[in-house]
């Protein structure tokens, strides 16, 4: 059933550069057909190098990978025939119009004239660029360029779609529209999506499963819920109105959960085994102790907490080579 196989299988994939570190250092992963797979990591973690290898634009120096059943090294042309890719840089010709980009790419893909027109028009409509289709792309906004790039990646009706940081630099509205389109592709068309991102929210919202990559290695993999559950229970932070009541608040909260470090100096925190369901008990305990609250926060673990737990760094600062704030577990 190779023809219907939209999966991605990667075993021990390595890319070492001459006199440099291993950008990708022996990763294993499997993406199921029709799945949106998030590949999360900071700049320089190895995300784009992985995409370049899986799209056949960079030969690996070790390991194997199959995309839609085809080996990325031995069957490069077959892989290219079944994939679409929107790479990190939105590479458009500023002197060509949106429609001319479609014509160029469609003719290089070998589509008939009728098919070029039909698919081009449909995709321009789908990404909302009909009105701008005959304008040179040099005048497009960042969001329009990204949408055109995505539409061009879909021109060959790919079975597997690679999106390398597709929403970087987009405003919230454009980002949300793109997320919607990607989700629709997987849901309705059964397209397998390999999505790299450094945005936690993006991975959380879109991906069924997420792999976290750091320094070329996958440090965690699973559904967002599994990954978050893996690092512990939610915490609640109570900030008393009067700082002198911190001790009383800590004593009251200790009866409900396990004390832990509070995010702010003014608050006290406990880990809740029952999560949000324990909140009424928290409020009752604090009320019973006569603590007047200024703020009460429930902190669900985030993918950033997962990244922090697995690498000892926050994803936000990792791109700048920030030092570990906690030792890795």
């Amino acid at each position: 059933m190779r023809a219907a196989d939209n999966s991605i299988e990667v075993e021990g994939l390595v890319r070492a550069f001459k006199n440099g570190p291993r950008a990708v250092d022996g990763i294993d992963l499997r993406v199921e057909p029709g799945e949106i797979y998030g590949f999360l990591g900071p700049n320089g973690a190895g995300k784009s190098t992985t995409v370049m290898m899986l799209t056949t634009l960079l030969p690996p120096t070790g390991g194997t990978a199959r995309v839609a059943g085809f080996d990325i090294v031995r069957e490069g042309p077959k892989v290219r025939r079944v994939i679409g890719a929107a790479l990190q840089e939105v590479a458009l010709d500023p002197y060509l119009t949106g429609r001319e980009h479609f014509r160029l790419q469609a003719s290089l893909l070998g589509l008939s004239r009728a098919e070029r027109t039909r698919r081009g028009q449909a995709l321009l409509e789908r990404v909302g660029l009909i009105e701008a289709a005959d304008r040179k792309t040099g005048g497009y906004s960042g969001g329009m360029k990204r949408r055109l790039d995505l539409a061009l990646a879909l021109l060959g009706e790919p079975r597997v779609l690679f999106l390398d940081e597709p929403t970087t630099g987009l405003d919230p509205q454009s980002r949300s529209a793109l997320w919607e389109e990607v989700a629709r592709l997987a849901r309705e068309d059964g397209v397998t999506v390999f999505l790299t991102t450094q945005y936690l929210e993006e991975a959380d919202v879109l991906a069924r499963r997420v792999a976290i990559i750091d320094n070329g290695r996958i440090v965690a993999e699973g559904t967002p819920a599994e990954l978050k559950a893996g690092i512990g229970d939610p915490t609640v932070e109570a900030v008393p109105h009067d700082p002198a009541q911190r001790a009383a608040a800590a004593e009251a909260l200790a009866t409900i959960g396990t004390p832990c470090a509070a995010p702010s100096e003014l608050g006290v925190s406990v880990r809740l085994r029952g999560g949000a369901a324990d909140l009424p008990a928290v409020v009752r305990a604090l009320d019973g102790a006569g603590v007047r609250l200024a703020q009460l926060h429930l902190h669900e673990p985030s993918l950033d907490d997962v990244f922090l737990a697995k690498t000892g760094r926050s994803l936000e600062g990792a791109a700048d080579g920030a030092e570990p704030v906690n030792p890795p577990r």
Partner: peptide, 13 residues
């Protein structure tokens, strides 16, 4: 420089 060559490289040209 812009990566347009990579876009072309993904086609059978």
């Amino acid at each position: 420089e812009s990566g347009f060559l990579q876009r072309l490289a993904l086609t059978p040209i």
